[in-house]
Design a protein around this nucleic acid. Sequence first.
DNA 1: GCTTGACTTAGAGCGCACTCTAACTTCTAG
DNA 2: CTAGAAGTTAGAGTGCGCTCTAAGTCAAGC
Lengths: 153, 153
Amino acid sequence: MESHLTIDEVAKRTGLTAYTLRYYERIGLIAPISRAPGGQRRYAVSDMAWIEFLLRLRTTNMPIGKMQTFAKLRGAGDSTVPDRRQMLEEHLTEVLSEIEAMRRSADALQAKIEYYRSFEQSLASGSHSDEGHADEHRKPLRTRTGQTAGDRR
Amino acid sequence: MESHLTIDEVAKRTGLTAYTLRYYERIGLIAPISRAPGGQRRYAVSDMAWIEFLLRLRTTNMPIGKMQTFAKLRGAGDSTVPDRRQMLEEHLTEVLSEIEAMRRSADALQAKIEYYRSFEQSLASGSHSDEGHADEHRKPLRTRTGQTAGDRR
DNA sequence: GCTTGACTTAGAGCGCACTCTAACTTCTAG
DNA sequence: CTAGAAGTTAGAGTGCGCTCTAAGTCAAGC
């Protein structure tokens, strides 16, 4: 245990840059890392686990400000576990609805891709369907009421 | 049809601000909107559909630069449909893996919440399990090798 | 006509999350 | 011992996506 990783090794393992690791420490997301005699950082296994947890918060779009709050609670000891749990519960709720929103949008994108495919098909085969897709200004749509956008000021 | 909405009405309907709607038009995400005689914007139904599509791209984290590329292709007509389809396909692939990453992280957060719950339970019942959770520095962990971070320069 | 509020523009400013620079120290290989 | 790589700090700079300001015009009600 205590595998004393250098900052570059941690960067490689986590995908963060050394800059970012120092930045996170500076702003209190990561507690002060222990140092080698020369002053260089030596990351412990437990530091890695925490960083990986931070990455999960980041992946789920928690803003840094909230992560700081969470990190501070963690630093304050076991008595803050209920607060931490509540923070995570609230965050998780948001995350799940973000995922759902993305899923819905992804479905719409998929539908549009399929519309494009069928459009390419009809072009290739010479047929034409008149079938439009929401924001695609097919034939009759887009009457553009004159006005030619007289953008003079 | 042609329901000629004002910018504030569109803002209300889309959740964007009027600032953002003008900004999107300025940077070419939205084609020049037609104007009322006095120079004020009047949004058509077809504009709304396009804006809603843009919002789906935004929801799925497409950067504005790519949206601009897409908008430009769209403005260039039907011949760009294959390019647009390809853009969307590539984007969709990224989106699906982002969703998957979020889902995995959400699962880990859920597990942590449950760990916190059981921790609170054992505190309440006076028992204690010694069972740790990844980044939680339970009992023996965190030996913090002296050095007291001699941060002098 | 007058006021109030909604609209217009060009351009400046902001918050976030890094990312890098400069100047310096320390570690490692030869 | 020395060169070069890797580390250190404080603080400046960057890119993104808005967001707002200032100064002015236009629309609607009294």
